[in-house]
Design a protein around this nucleic acid. Structure first.
Length: 472
RNA sequence: GGCGGGGUAGCCAAGUGGUAAGGCUGCGGUCUGCAAAACCGCUAUUCGCGGGUUCGAUUCCCGCCCCCGCCUCCA
C-alpha cells in the first residue's frame, strides 16, 4: 500500500511523494509553542501527532528533517514579561525549558531544530522578506506605521481554509488597526512599536517594531528548509489565518509552492468541552503526572486516537491507557521468558520476514493508529493463547519480539526500565516462597498483602513467583 | 451564515457494497490452595433519523436532526 495522507489543501487523501523523488530526504515544518505559559496537553496532542508522523515516515525509510519554531515574542509574551516585571527573554526562558521537559516526558522526538523568533538571524530574514513583499506591492505600511500584507494582491489567499474573503468580518478579537488597513483581512507583517512593548523592539526600514506572528514561520521555514517543504503540520486552528498567511508570505516572496502537503490535527477536548483556563478542565503534563500517571501513559492516551478525530480526554481514558499498557508489558515479559526458555538447536532465530506488516500498512493509511493498535492486540491475544498451551516456540517468540522492537520504534511505548526489585521486596518474596513450600498459605497471603502495600504485585506461576511493579 | 470534522455496544474506537476489528469496563467459565495474569464465552440482528439505488447498505445518493471546531494572532 502506498503512503497517503489527508491534505488540508485539497481536502482529500493524497499519495505522499517526496519533492525530491530520487532521495529519501524530506523536510517537515511544524508550528511550535508560544512560550507565554506552560503548554497544555492539547498542545501536546498536536506534537504527538507530529511525532507519530515523523516516526512512521522514518520507519518507511525516509530521512526526516523537522523544524519546530518557538514563538518567543508576541502580545502575550510581552504582556507576561511586563506583568512579571522581567525582561522578555527571561520570561520566556522558563516556558521554553518547561516545554522541553514535557516533550521528553512524553517521549516526543525533538525536532532537529527549534528556531526562536527573536534570533537576530531570523529577524533579519523576516525584514528581508517584508521588503520583498513591499517591492512587489504585496505589502504596505499603514498610517499606524505597521506593515500589512495586502491579501487582495494574492489571489490564492483563502484557498487552504476554503474561505471566501468577502465574508470576513470583524470579530472584535483584534486589539487595534481595524481602521488603518485597506482590507479587514490584511494581516500584520511588522507591528509598529507602542508603549506597551516597552524594551521589546527591533529597528527596521519602517521604524522600530516587532514581527507579526505569521512572518516568523515563513522566515524560519524558508531559512532552514528552503523555499519548498514536503509537509507542514499544525493544529486545525492554525489553518486560518496562520497557515494561510504563511502561504501568502512565502509564495509571495519565492514564487514557488510553499508546502506540498498540509496536515492538521484535530483538537483535544476535556470531558467533551474545549479546554479553557476559565473552566476547571485545563491540564498540563505536570498536572497529569500529579494524578499519579506516567508520561508513557499520557503518551498512549494522546496517541491512540486518529489525529483528525477530536480526542476527548478523560481520567477514565487515562485508566484505559494504563490497563492497555499493562497488557502489553505482561505480554512482553512472557514473550521474553518464552524466548529465553531454550536454545534452538539450529540457531536461525525466528522467521521475522514472515511476520505481518499490517501494523505498518495501517499507518500508511493516513496514520490509522487505531487499526494499527488493533493488530497489535490481536497479535497479543494469539501469541498468549499459544503460550498458554506451550505451543509457542522460542524462536517464534523471539521473532515476535523483533517485530515488537520494530513497531515500538514508532510507538515508543515500552516500560521505562525493568524495575529493579528492592531488597525489602526480595526478602519478603523469599520468605513467601518458603511459606509456600511449607503450604503455609495464610502466611503466604499475608506476605502477598505486605508486598502489595509496598507497590509490588506477586503472581504465582508454574515457574514460581513473579514480581512486578504496579502503580495502581 | 460560510468552511470543516464527527454521530458504530456501558465507555473509547477501527472498518467494509455481502452481512460489525481492537482496547477498557461488567458478568460467567478454565487455570490457581486462593489470587493475579492469561485464555474461553456473553455484552450492537445492528452502525443518528427518514427516504432512494441495489439481489443485498452501516458502507453509495438525497433530505433531515444532533454534537464539536474554525471564521484574524488559540495546537
Amino acid at each position: 500500500m502506498s503512503l497517503r495522507f489527508f491534505n488540508t489543501y485539497s481536502r482529500q487523501l493524497e499519495e505522499f511523494t517526496p519533492r525530491d523523488p530520487t532521495s529519501r530526504k524530506i523536510d517537515i515544518y511544524t508550528c511550535g509553542p508560544t512560550v507565554y505559559s506552560r503548554a497544555h496537553i492539547g498542545n501536546f496532542r498536536a506534537y504527538m501527532f507530529e511525532d507519530l508522523l515523523q516516526r512512521h515516515l522514518e520507519a518507511r525509510g525516509y530521512a526526516v528533517h523537522r523544524v519546530m519554531n518557538i514563538t518567543d515574542v508576541d502580545d502575550k509574551t510581552i504582556r507576561g514579561a511586563r506583568e512579571a516585571g522581567i525582561p522578555l527573554a527571561k520570561f520566556t526562558e522558563q516556558f521554553k525549558q518547561a516545554f522541553f521537559e514535557d516533550i521528553e516526558t512524553l517521549r516526543i522526538k525533538p525536532a532537529d531544530e527549534f528556531p526562536a523568533a527573536t534570533d537576530q538571524r531570523y529577524i533579519d530574514k523576516m525584514i528581508a522578506m517584508i521588503e520583498t513583499l513591499m517591492s512587489r506591492g504585496l505589502a504596505y505600511q499603514a498610517d499606524d506605521k505597521s506593515v500589512y500584507f495586502r491579501i487582495n494582491k494574492f489571489p490564492n489567499y483563502g484557498k487552504l481554509a476554503h474561505f471566501d474573503l468577502s465574508e470576513l468580518k470583524p470579530t472584535g478579537r483584534v486589539r487595534h488597526d481595524e481602521y488603518d488597513k485597506e482590507h479587514i483581512g490584511d494581516f500584520a507583517l511588522w507591528k509598529a512599536w507602542d508603549e506597551e512593548d516597552g524594551e521589546v523592539g527591533w529597528d527596521s526600514p519602517w521604524g522600530r517594531g516587532r514581527p507579526g506572528w505569521h512572518i516568523e514561520c515563513s522566515a524560519m521555514a524558508t531559512a532552514l528548509l528552503g523555499d519548498q517543504i514536503d509537509i507542514h503540520c499544525g493544529g486545525v486552528d492554525n489553518i486560518f489565518p496562520h497557515h494561510e498567511a504563511e502561504i501568502a508570505q512565502s509564495e509571495g516572496v519565492t514564487g514557488k509552492k510553499f508546502a506540498r502537503m498540509w496536515l492538521h490535527c484535530a483538537h483535544l477536548l476535556v470531558d467533551g468541552q474545549k479546554m479553557a483556563k476559565s473552566l476547571v478542565n485545563f491540564y498540563t503534563v505536570p498536572d497529569v503526572l500529579a494524578k499519579g500517571y506516567t508520561g508513557r501513559e499520557l503518551r498512549y492516551a494522546l496517541l491512540r486516537v486518529h489525529y483528525r478525530t477530536q480526542l476527548n480526554f478523560t481520567w477514565e481514558g487515562m485508566h484505559e491507557a494504563r490497563e492497555s499498557l499493562e497488557r502489553i508489558d505482561d505480554w512482553l515479559m512472557r514473550l521474553r521468558e518464552c524466548g529465553a526458555s531454550f536454545q534452538p538447536a539450529n540457531s536461525g532465530s525466528g522467521q521475522v520476514e514472515n511476520l505481518p506488516h499490517n501494523f505498518d500498512d495501517a499507518l500508511d493509511d493516513d496514520l490509522n493508529i487505531s487499526a494499527a493498535l488493533g493488530f497489535l492486540f490481536e497479535t497479543i491475544r494469539e501469541t498468549n493463547r499459544a503460550m498458554d498451551v506451550d505451543e509457542l516456540e522460542a524462536a517464534t517468540a523471539n521473532a515476535w519480539l523483533s517485530w515488537w522492537e520494530r513497531i515500538n520504534r514508532v510507538l515508543d511505548l515500552e516500560k521505562e526500565t525493568a524495575d529493579a526489585i528492592p531488597p525489602e521486596i526480595s526478602r519478603l518474596a523469599d520468605e513467601r516462597a518458603r511459606a509456600r513450600a511449607e503450604k503455609n498459605f495464610a502466611r503466604s497471603d499475608e506476605l502477598r498483602d505486605q508486598i502489595a502495600a509496598l507497590g509490588w504485585q506477586v503472581r504465582d506461576t508454574k515457574d514460581g513467583q513473579k514480581l512486578a511493579r504496579r502503580r495502581t
